[in-house]
Design a protein around this nucleic acid. Structure first.
Length: 375
DNA sequence: AAGTCGGGGTG
DNA sequence: CACCCAGACTT
């Protein structure tokens, strides 16, 4: 024991001096300035997994309330596996990228049924076995929950490391370099803290717009800062143009209940509920669009206004109409008949997982129908 | 390699 | 308003 410990650790002695210094500087900074976040107070792989999925393309501040509420409702992987998909989507409602919630549900069932309820412990196994876990999330879980020396490359790590080494390659080529750098730097003695520190540095100091280089533990080594403008690195991919979706949402009433339909299992807002939405035909009036879709099943069409909603790559404009249903209850147009649907009074709407733009419509309806409460 | 997929924070 | 965010998956 004394003999082997007298020998310097292989890692520390074989690593370049700069790597050893960068690790020490970052970890020292993390000890002083690191954020106190709830998923850092546990090593439960389930809780860490949930946090990592929620944090995909989503900022910490947004995630915090969702994380707390989720763990209170579904505290274990077994509870998640046994839950209804509807309940899972309801917990996720408003967080966006709903495929993440569907994959969490699927993956929980894989863990219970095919892995005896036990989490895979290596990054490779995590990524291969479980839907929704890519390379970076696998690295984050493996290092945070199981202490494995695995790299991450999220938006923070990409920006911090891209600046530190002034990686100016086109995005596709830079990716491989950045993974190499991340794997070379991650501290085998403290992979959890190192990766968390890397993300904190990106989130609080090495920010996208105006980095606070004078507070950075890596300011001396940073080639991006030395170059004059660290924000030139790394080069970001071009942004897709935003397309327009224009249509009509119809609040169809029948004996005090309104028709809700479930969106398809794939694509935009998959599996969430909405009032029947019909894309506009021609440049015509909303009444014409509704007539084409519903034929003579409706009467008393009434314009209630319109809602707009911004997605990352879509702009939605929905005219909102109210109408009375005068056909037989089961006589839905084919496009809606093939979907799951239900008639619900306003006080029951919020039991269903619905996207943001539908919440705006509910508010509009509440104002138009003051005698009924949407709460 | 390029598109798709939400909603909110921030300068 | 434009840009960005603890990315993964499909085509």
């Amino acid at each position: 024991m004394g003999y082997s410990s007298a020998k310097p650790s292989l890692n520390n002695c074989s690593e370049p001096e700069q790597v050893v210094r960068l690790r020490a500087q970052l970890l020292e900074w993390y000890g002083r300035m690191g954020r106190d976040l709830p998923w850092r107070r546990t090593r439960d792989p389930y809780a860490i997994w949930i946090s990592e999925i929620m944090l995909q393309q989503t900022q910490v501040k947004t995630v915090l309330p969702y994380y707390q509420r989720w763990l209170a409702a579904l505290p274990t992987v077994a509870a998640l596996a046994a839950a209804e998909l509807e309940a899972v989507l309801k917990l996720w409602e408003g967080l966006g990228y709903y495929t993440r919630a569907r994959n969490l549900h699927k993956a929980a069932q894989v863990i219970v049924k095919e892995h005896g309820g036990v989490f895979p412990e290596t990054a490779q196994q995590l990524q291969q076995a479980l839907p929704g876990i890519g390379r970076s999330t696998a690295g984050a879980i493996a290092s945070s929950a199981f202490g494995r020396c695995e790299a991450i490359l999220d938006a923070n790590a990409r920006r911090v490391l891209g600046r530190l080494f002034a990686v100016g390659d086109p995005p596709a080529r830079a990716e491989a370099k950045l993974w190499e750098i991340s794997q070379r730097l991650v501290d085998p003695q403290a992979p959890h803290n190192f990766n968390q520190a890397l993300m904190d540095l990106g989130a609080t100091v090495c920010t996208a717009r105006s980095p606070l280089c004078l507070l950075c533990p890596w300011q001396v080594d940073c080639l991006g800062r030395r170059s004059g403008d660290p924000t030139h690195f790394p080069v970001r991919p071009a942004r897709a143009v935003r397309s327009e979706i224009a249509g009509v949402s119809v609040a169809i009433e029948c004996q005090g209940k309104f028709l809700l339909v479930r969106r398809p299992e794939r694509g935009l807002l998959a599996g969430l509920w909405e009032f029947p939405f019909v894309e506009s035909v021609g440049g015509g009036e909303p009444e014409e669009t509704v007539r084409v879709a519903f034929g003579n099943r409706l009467e008393s069409l009434e314009r209630l206004g319109q809602v707009e909603h911004e997605f990352t790559h879509r702009h939605l404009t929905a005219q909102v109409l109210r109408a009375q249903w005068i056909a037989a209850p089961a006589a839905l147009p084919k496009v809606f008949d093939c979907r799951e649907h239900t008639w619900q009074p306003p006080e029951c709407w919020l039991k269903f997982p619905m996207p943001g733009y539908v919440h705006k419509i509910c508010k509009l309806l509440k104002e138009a129908l003051p005698k009924v409460s949407v709460d």
